[in-house]
């Protein structure tokens, strides 16, 4: 079981993801609505795994990833994205993202990724 931080500007996405994770025995310890809040929550909560939406207002997922990795070089971060953002995915890999999942969420895929991490 992993302690997970969900960072996504969409309440719907956070709710669907939380449901999938909790149903499978994981603990969602915090949620954040944008990258800036996500970085703060990461420092506060030290989650095992963080899911980071790429497209967010205030601070996007890529910038948040950089800041989280600066704070914790071992942070395990899954980037969440609608398909079609290949360039940003490449940038996220360079910045240390561990994995990707695409929306709409596929439960088995997400659980496999978290298990692998």
């Amino acid at each position: 079981m992993a302690r997970i931080l969900i960072v996504d500007d969409s309440r719907t996405s956070r709710k669907i993801l939380r449901g999938l994770l909790e149903e499978s025995g994981h603990e969602v310890i915090a949620e954040a609505e944008n990258g800036e809040e996500g970085v703060k929550k990461y420092i506060e909560c030290k989650p095992d795994v963080t899911t980071l939406d790429i497209t967010m207002p205030v601070m996007d997922g890529l910038e948040a990833l950089t800041k989280i990795r600066e704070y914790d070089g071992n942070a395990k971060v899954i980037m969440v994205t609608a398909a079609g953002q290949q360039n940003k995915m490449v940038e996220a890999i360079k910045n240390g993202a561990s994995e990707f999942v695409t929306k709409p969420f596929e439960k088995d895929n997400i659980l496999k990724i978290i298990e692998k991490m």
């Binding site: 719907t12 609608a82 290949q86 940003k88 709409p104």
Partner: peptide
């Protein structure tokens, strides 16, 4: 929720046309 549905559709569309255009999804 409606916006997230659009986001999913736009993501698939962006994947399809990314060979022809360089585009980004806006929040």
């Amino acid at each position: 929720a409606v916006a997230e549905f659009i986001n999913c559709v736009n993501g698939m569309f962006a994947t399809k046309i990314n060979n022809a255009f360089d585009i980004d999804l806006v929040p």
